[in-house]
């Protein structure tokens, strides 16, 4: 399954709130929500020093590579991964098959606590993604794409 192809302000805000709560409850340094194709969706915590775009792309690549391994092993997707660093650790979870929840934490937290809190947040995220998918399918919001004209596109490429 690919990542979401659209995000609306209401759900974006709700997802940001879930990320913020997870950061607090898991005593994490930062939390990122990333589309499975590598687009950053929401974030919380200490992200000012992070290159979120690069981190998102590399994490999506990592999940895709792990997914490739699971396929070879005839296993379903590996739902979570954990990378242990000297100071910072990363917990990566698939959310409803279409997004990736990344928790960065240090010695102030533990893998057990992160796992516990991630479960609850993932369930909420899945519901929010379902809501986005329903809205997109119903086309209840006008798409920016229908408003774009040929000259808009041409103007973008004028030197």
């Amino acid at each position: 399954m690919s990542g979401p192809d659209v995000m609306y302000p209401e759900e974006q805000q709700a997802m940001s709130l879930v990320c913020a709560r997870l950061t607090r409850d898991a005593n994490a340094k930062a939390v990122l929500l990333i589309g499975r194709d590598g687009q950053p969706i929401a974030e919380a915590g200490d992200v000012d020093e992070l290159d979120v775009t690069s981190l998102s792309s590399l994490t999506a690549g990592n999940v895709a590579a792990t997914g490739g391994i699971s396929k070879i092993l005839r296993e379903k997707d590996f739902f979570s991964q954990f990378h242990e660093g000297e100071k910072t650790h990363i917990h990566i979870t698939l959310v409803g098959g279409r997004a990736i929840l990344v928790v960065l934490f240090d010695e102030r937290s533990s893998l057990g606590l992160v796992r516990l809190r991630v479960k609850k947040s993932s369930d909420e995220m899945v519901r929010l993604f379902d809501s986005v998918a329903k809205k997109a399918a119903a086309k209840s919001e006008p798409s920016i794409l229908t408003e774009i004209t040929d000259s808009d596109i041409d103007n973008l490429f004028n030197d």
């Binding site: 690919s2 990542g3 192809d5 659209v6 995000m7 302000p9 974006q12 589309g35 798409s143 920016i144």
Partner: peptide
């Protein structure tokens, strides 16, 4: 797949 974010525009 393209991704359109109406929140961050």
């Amino acid at each position: 797949m393209s991704f359109i974010n109406y929140s961050s525009r």
